[in-house]
């Protein structure tokens, strides 16, 4: 089955009036959806429209909010780039891995590098930052400064999770952690069984703490 871009846009806007859509060019549709109903939108795109391949998830630090773009492809070549955002002081998203099972690594990557909370992906997995990476350091945030470039005495915090113990380390350079911390094994990723487990046990962590556990 294949579609024309106009047809897809028409179907999407009819079904989801709150979604704004842009046709960038042939085979590229961009849409922005509110957080509420985003999973329903992805379910519709997957189940009803037959877009079965999640290419990747791009995280974006847009200043006052964090965005996730789900790049979803159809076998006919059309890609829907579905964007969802959450405020920077409470970056909580729902996982799409119940719909796209291959997407666990992409969401883990966005969570780990941007310090987001994504409800429904395994809590104990850390990917791709190493296990001795300091807590509260999210390198792809725009406010993140290379440790070598930081002013030593600065109290400046570059993470919003200021009330967590992790933020105490926020301003200090990420040096190799003590052995105790490094003892934990590198996270376990992409387990088929853990994916199905996740579906049954959505995460219950407090968003304020961030889910980027080490």
């Amino acid at each position: 089955m294949s579609y024309t871009e106009e047809e897809l846009v028409a179907r999407l806007t009819e079904r989801f009036p709150s979604v704004t859509t842009t046709e960038q060019r042939e085979r590229r549709i961009w849409l922005t959806s509110p957080r509420e109903g985003f999973i329903d939108l992805l379910t519709y795109i997957h189940d009803d429209l037959g877009f079965n391949m999640l290419c990747t998830v791009s995280g974006l630090d847009a200043g006052e909010e964090f965005q996730l773009i789900y790049h979803i492809a159809h076998d006919c070549g059309i890609v829907i780039n579905a964007r969802v955002s959450a405020p920077a002081d409470n970056p909580v998203f729902d996982t799409a891995t119940n719909i796209y099972k291959g997407g666990v690594l992409y969401e883990l990557e966005a969570r780990n590098l941007f310090g987001l909370t994504i409800l429904g992906i395994p809590e104990d997995i850390r990917y791709p930052l190493p296990e001795n990476w300091p807590q509260g350091e999210y390198p792809l945030r725009k406010s993140w400064v290379l440790p070598a470039d930081r002013v030593p005495e600065s109290d400046e915090q570059d993470t919003p999770s200021e009330d967590t113990p992790a933020s105490a380390e926020g301003a200090s350079p990420p040096v190799i952690a003590s052995e105790g911390e490094a003892e934990a094994r590198q996270s376990t990723v992409a387990v088929a069984s853990s994916i199905s487990d996740t579906a049954q046990n959505p995460a219950s962590s407090s968003p304020a703490e961030g889910s980027d556990n080490g």
Binding site: P139, W144, T188, V189
Partner: peptide, 28 residues
């Protein structure tokens, strides 16, 4: 890459893949 394999005799009954050992910070 690290593989955590769960074996029953010679057969693999469970496998998990750990990645991330080769990160170089390209995107940043």
């Amino acid at each position: 890459a690290n593989f955590a394999l769960s074996l029953d005799g010679e057969r693999i009954v469970g496998a998990a893949v750990n990645l991330g050992y080769n990160h170089r910070g390209v995107e940043k």
